[in-house]
Simulated assay, not measured.
Amino acid sequence: MALPNRGGGGRMNPRFNRQPEPEHRINERIRVPQVRLVGDNVTVGVYPLEEARKIAQQQELDLVEISPNADPPVCKVIDYKKFLYEKKRKEKEMKANAKQSEVKEIRFTPGTDDHDFDFKAKHAEKFLKDGNKVKAYVQFKGRAIMFKDRGELLLLKFAERLTEAGVLEGMPKMEGKRMLVMFAPKSQKKPVTPAKA
């Protein structure tokens, strides 16, 4: 049996079609009697709104409300598109920097063999060279906790292996049933080769 057509024909709801509101009120959207004006080539002070708009127009810039809750609201004379571009660029940079300082984990057991050790060391070197921190730990299960010294030796050997790429942030320490160390990336400075005579 066919279901009755409820109408609507799959049209988008017009409420969701509207352009998003700009982050700041600018130019004609500012609706207050007076504003505190700031910006380059501007005498800072309180101005009637119309006068502030004229000052922005004379410089072929925008009047942008940057602190709407101040009394009176603070407006800046700037190129709004450039302002938004700079803001986005800074946010992108901050995200990139936040991404760089991720902590990558490398897990060992007291019985990790040489092949596995090398494989994990190569991964850790890559993480450090990419700007990430590395947390290396030895997981002890059951009676393996008796081999704490073996775990410590393994982590110190690992630290020695990573001296080119990372800096050890402290000696191995126990946290519950794991012994761990942290490595921070070394600043990527190329060694200076002495000039030949």
Rank of each mutant, 00 (worst) to 15 (best):
K82R: 15
G151Q: 03
L49Y: 05
V42M: 04
L61M: 14
K148A: 15
K157T: 13
E86M: 13
K148E: 15
Y80I: 05
G45H: 03
R161Q: 05
D116M: 07
F119H: 07
P33N: 10
I26W: 02
Q59K: 09
N132A: 14
C75M: 14
P68N: 13
L128P: 03
P48S: 13
D118S: 11
E50S: 11
Y80V: 11
K120C: 11
E60Y: 02
K95I: 09
H24T: 00
Q34V: 03
K120G: 07
F119C: 07
S67F: 04
F140N: 06
A98H: 08
K148R: 11
R25E: 14
K92A: 10
I106L: 12
N69G: 08
D113S: 09
E50Q: 04
K92G: 08
K148P: 02
I145Q: 09
Y137M: 09
K148F: 09
D113I: 08
F108R: 10
K82H: 11
K104M: 15
E86A: 13
F119Y: 15
G111C: 08
K148Y: 08
T109A: 13
Y47D: 01
T112V: 10
K148D: 11
K120Y: 10
V42Q: 00
K88H: 04
S101G: 12
T43H: 10
L128F: 03
K104Q: 15
K88D: 08
M94N: 12
K126G: 06
L156S: 06
T43M: 10
F127Y: 12
V138L: 05
P72F: 01
K54F: 03
I106P: 01
L37F: 02
R53Y: 00
S67C: 07
D149E: 14
Q139S: 15
G45S: 09
V44W: 02
Y80R: 14
A159N: 04
I106C: 07
G142N: 12
I55A: 02
V74S: 06
D62Y: 03
D118N: 06
E125W: 06
N69Q: 10
I55L: 15
R53V: 04
I55R: 02
K129M: 13
K95Q: 13
K157V: 07
L61R: 05
K157W: 00
E93N: 12
C75E: 03
P72E: 02
K141F: 13
G131S: 10
I55D: 00
E102R: 07
Q58M: 12
S101F: 14
A70S: 11
P33V: 14
N41I: 01
E93D: 13
K120N: 12
Y47L: 03
V35S: 05
G142L: 08
R89W: 06
F158T: 06
R29A: 11
E160C: 02
